[in-house]
Amino acid sequence: MAFLDLNNLSHQYFTKSGFTKAIEDISLSVEEGSFVSFLGPSGCGKTTLLSIVAGLLQPTEGQVLIDQKPLKEQKASIGYMLQQDYLFPWKTIEQNVVLGPYIQGDRSEAVKQKAASILSEIGLGNVLQSYPSQLSGGMRQRVALARTLMTDPKILLLDEPFSALDYQTKLKLEDLVSNTLKSYNKTSLLVTHDIGEAIAMSDSIYLLSANPGRLSKKFGVPSHLKTLSPFDARQHNDFNALFQDIWKELNKLE
């Protein structure tokens, strides 16, 4: 049995002038510990899909099951990383990172220690008392990752988390996030418009067609690419072949 099941998800947005169908009849299952990416043209409902899995949005049809249990019963088991870090500028890095446990009522000393240890693991052990404005974009996105990991989410949702970064930082962060998530054995869903990023990081890739968003094709990443770090995977010969395949499929969709 799969760890995460999406069953016949559909969602409509209503406006004064009518409604738009963001996603339609999406069903898929994800194994525990695996990394899945969603690629597609803009307007294919990628962010809607993540919001539904995060429990922030109630789908008009279908349901999300984690370990065969409906999502509502285990809301806190999801971590969400956004396009930008959205750190609270008036909180210190430490206060930002402990936000999740803090909201859930855990203000113990152990939480602070955990925050410090996660931050030092990703190379940010010395900025606990700094404010977000003192950090670079890449550092801030790493802090956002730490904040997401603090609540021990079973599933991590990544909504184009590297799109606002410069290329070099992005490559470095891909490696860091990929390694971190592997070492914590997290199940991850990544939404992106970057084909290379999807191949380098994922175990499998779903292509979505637009208006309404529908699953159009699934690509499996070859196992020897999976084991490589994202940066090394980008250098591998098979990377380009897969890139070309996906590129052609994506062009057909538009």
Binding site: L56, A76, G79, Y80, Y86, G100
Partner: peptide
């Protein structure tokens, strides 16, 4: 206030 701040809060069940 930027809705994404609220999204962060809500994702922690605030």
């Amino acid at each position: 206030v930027d809705e994404n701040y609220l999204k962060v809060m809500n994702s922690f069940g605030a």
